[in-house]
């Protein structure tokens, strides 16, 4: 029976047009970034950066490099926002629309219902993450007519590496997988807020605010020594998949912390959902 509830939650989620806004926006952003990267001035800047590090633009300006580059920008800027939009709607929108009362007039356990919603949120996070990873790579490789080497340069994340095509593809796939797993926390925060007496938009706004404040504080120089206390540091563990030497303990530590935070959000959300009144 629980499997049917989970399937129904997925049906409700993926039958809604709003769910696909995120997919559409990411495609559009990928296209825009690719177009911008084609501009001479950008190419020149890119070439200078590579030359300063002793690299040739012909070796490093590849499909894989562009795909990673685009992911840096789109994921940091938009992934959290669209997850917050969808997960923030999961309970609050149903309460606002009145469908939650229809559902709760049935002999369904509240905890089971919320668990089905959490599964739908997690699936959406995985689906959108995988979509971003796959379409970015596809678009960039088509644009550059091949995969090529992978060059990653991220000074704030202390990442600078060049990989061959096969190692590059493996690192890219690993980074997308880590991104899908780590961003479950963003969905969990939005779902938790959605369980409170709150409008759907408010759940989204508060989630985005949490991420923005975290980012802003992280970038204040005084707080640099405390970097590993911020969510953004751990959410960015997918970028550490591009370090020359993979530091698995560091990545696993981040994943454990994120899993703990996600679980905490689920528990708080479930407690609120199971004890609150639903009234017109």
């Amino acid at each position: 029976m629980f499997a049917k509830h989970a399937r129904n939650e997925l049906l409700k989620l993926f039958a809604r047009r709003r769910t696909y806004i995120g997919f559409g926006v990411f495609l559009a952003v990928e296209a825009i970034i690719l177009a911008l990267l084609n501009m001479d001035v950008v190419l020149a800047a890119f070439g200078t950066l590579l030359a300063n590090n002793g690299l040739q633009i012909s070796d490093c300006y590849t499909g894989l490099t562009l795909a990673t580059f685009i992911n840096f920008f789109t994921v940091t800027m938009l992934f959290g926002l669209y997850l917050a939009l969808v997960a923030g709607d999961m309970v609050a929108k149903e309460v606002e629309d009145g469908t939650m009362r229809m559902v709760l007039s049935r002999p369904v356990a509240r905890l089971g219902l919320l668990a089905a919603k959490a599964i739908a949120c997690a699936t959406y996070t995985l689906a959108l993450g995988a979509f971003i990873g796959a379409t970015t790579l596809l678009a960039a490789c088509l644009y550059m007519r091949g995969v090529g080497n992978l060059m990653v340069f991220g000074p704030t994340q202390r990442v600078f590496a060049v990989f061959g095509p096969s190692e590059g593809l493996w690192r890219y796939a690993l980074s997308v997988a880590l991104m899908c797993v780590s961003y479950q926390l963003v969905s969990a925060i939005a779902l938790m807020l959605s369980c409170f007496k709150i409008r759907p938009a408010a759940a989204t706004v508060v989630t985005v605010t949490v991420l923005s404040v975290d980012l802003a504080l992280r970038n204040i120089p005084f707080f640099q020594p405390l970097d590993h206390y911020f969510l953004g540091y751990h959410l960015g563990c997918w970028i550490r998949a591009f370090r020359s030497t993979l530091l698995w303990p560091e990545i696993v530590q981040s994943l454990i912390l994120l899993a703990g935070a996600t679980l905490t959000c689920w528990v708080i959300g479930a407690t609120q959902f199971c004890t609150r009144d639903f009234k017109a």
């Binding site: 039958a15 809604r16 229809m102 007039s105």
Partner: peptide, 14 residues
Amino acid sequence: VGAIFEASSFYDYL
């Protein structure tokens, strides 16, 4: 038990 409310709410897109 079956229930109906004043404003019957459904998933309009289904």
